[in-house]
Design a protein around this nucleic acid. Structure first.
Lengths: 181, 181
DNA sequence: TGTGACATGTAATATGTTACATGATTGA
DNA sequence: TCAATCATGTAACATATTACATGTCACA
């Protein structure tokens, strides 16, 4: 069975979830996602979609909206098998292990800053995280309107991660303040 | 000032934190890290280290251990400035925003599985996460022995993220169970 | 009539992975 | 002495990013 990468799995899932859709619609989902990890750049999506088609995981259907040519894709039975294979246990370590976190990486090297700047770093991080948390709550509300429960569960996960990060940053700030006294 | 990427920043930070060290020592840190995101592959680290040297951010010093030739690197003043520039606010969106999470992405498409398999997915995820949490606790203990407080704060962050993920997976399982009754 | 968003791409570039190659050292 | 691990790399490959190119459509 076709093995798919992380981004391929996500695109395959989107083509499945959004019904027949265009590569541009897929791009928009990434661009509007609260997570900035994947830019949804044209240079990533269009070649990837053609790749999935050449492997028989999605099929195209010509589709014209007014004067614009466009291509609608839908998932094939082989594509559904690949999607389920990507989803199902056993999950790879990269999916279930400690997730990458650039903020955590930076905190590892906070000692390279002057002590006053360390506190400033944590204060800045907390403010920014609060902003993202508010945005994530709005995002959950929007998704709730749409009515897809798995979409909501995903958005809920983002909120919990942000809350945990905020708690962690606060804990770090308290710890450093206590040590500097 | 030299702008550094995520992996470059981490390597620069490690060369700073571990004192003068070899590329191999840097690789080992990535390989032994609880987070499997960066493999620390030779093909990534050796070229990257040379890149940092050619940009004047680290400096090499020949170093022979027995019959083996080896190279010790240390961070230059320009390298310290680059490290601080990478660390300091304002943080880029990719560092402070909702972090990427392959598990969250998969949950978005859980509807593609048969209902019974959805519960199995969540049960599997919970078990695996518990295992990672135990490993993360041991990891924190190890780092505590070493005595670097920022290293400990980072390890503590990994634990909080795993706990939040476990809580989220349980919440999702409860929610789905309630809806299917 | 022109400006900006929509929509579809391509090209150059950067960078990380796997797999391979080489030789030294250590321990059973 | 044989195998595993340490240690340093290189080569081929895949893939994501930025920047660019092109043309349509809505609307002011």
């Amino acid at each position: 069975m076709s093995r798919v990468s992380e981004l391929e799995g996500a695109v395959l899932g989107l083509v499945w979830a959004e019904g027949p859709c265009t590569p541009y619609a897929v791009r928009r989902v990434f661009q509007q996602s609260p997570s900035p990890h994947w830019s949804g750049s044209a240079g990533a999506i269009y070649p990837l979609v053609r790749r999935l088609e050449s492997r028989g995981l999605i099929r195209s259907r010509a589709h014209a909206t007014g004067g614009r040519a466009s291509t609608l894709y839908r998932v094939t039975p082989a594509g559904m098998r690949a999607l389920r294979g990507w989803l199902e246990p056993p999950l790879p370590e990269t999916a279930i292990g400690v997730p990458v976190d650039p903020l955590r990486t930076r905190l590892r090297f906070l000692g390279a800053l002057a002590p006053a700047k360390r506190a400033a770093f944590l204060a800045h991080a907390e403010v920014r995280l609060e902003g993202h948390l508010a945005a994530a709550r709005r995002d959950l509300e929007r998704r709730r309107q749409k009515g897809d429960r798995f979409d909501c569960l995903m958005a809920r996960g983002a909120i919990l991660m942000l809350r945990a990060r905020i708690a962690w940053v606060r804990e770090a700030a308290r710890y450093l303040a206590a040590r500097s006294r």
